[in-house]
């Protein structure tokens, strides 16, 4: 038997200024079996929704107002009022150049998906955030998923298992 994802248990918030894009992402998620998908067209509405609670995954465009999607991500990861600092966040954006990928990563994004995206690309990001959750790292200047994804065999002691001093 192989692993499956029951999307009916996952609650999404999709944030994009573009109505058609919000609707398309929502349609795709519903087709996969989601039953709880909320959309928001600006970052303040998104924050109000997140504060109210009841979401498992945030999918956001970078280009938002009044706060950008990057600022929204930063708020999720670092603000005292964040409902869940470890919530998976997928940055789905037409800011597709590498500097945006790096900046998102350094603010703690879980997955980055550049527009225009493919259905397959979208699905793989969803699988990654739901079925392959990453540990988090807290260090001066960064709180977010462990940015090292490569699994390289290592013979020495696992210092990650040691308690911090």
């Amino acid at each position: 038997m192989s692993e499956k994802i029951d999307f009916s248990h996952v609650r999404f918030l999709v944030v994009d200024t573009n109505r058609l894009m919000c609707q398309l992402v929502k349609d795709i998620l519903m087709m996969l079996g989601c039953t709880q998908v909320t959309t928001a067209r600006d970052s303040e509405k998104a924050i109000a929704n997140l504060r109210a609670g009841g979401y498992d995954v945030l999918i956001t465009e970078w280009n938002l107002k009044p706060r950008s999607g990057l600022e929204l991500l930063d708020w999720m990861r670092t603000d005292g009022g964040s409902p869940d600092r470890m919530m998976p966040v997928i940055m789905l954006t037409a800011n597709s150049e590498v500097e945006y990928v790096m900046e998102s990563r350094d603010k703690g994004v879980t997955e980055f998906l550049a527009k225009p995206f493919t259905a397959d690309g979208m699905y793989r990001r969803l699988v990654s955030v739901i079925a392959r959750p990453r540990d988090f790292v807290s260090v001066k200047g960064y709180f977010g998923p462990d940015r090292r994804r490569q699994q390289i065999p290592f013979e020495g002691p696992d210092r990650r298992q040691q308690k911090p001093e």
């Binding site: 029951d6 995954v57 079925a131 959750p133 001066k140």
Partner: peptide, 29 residues
Amino acid sequence: MRNKPQFIPNRGELKRKAVNYKTGMEIKL
């Protein structure tokens, strides 16, 4: 925030909620 990195294991709540062997979409599309 600290200078020495602190590793926080993922609680895995979402995975426990949604991933199973019976119902839903195959992991491989």
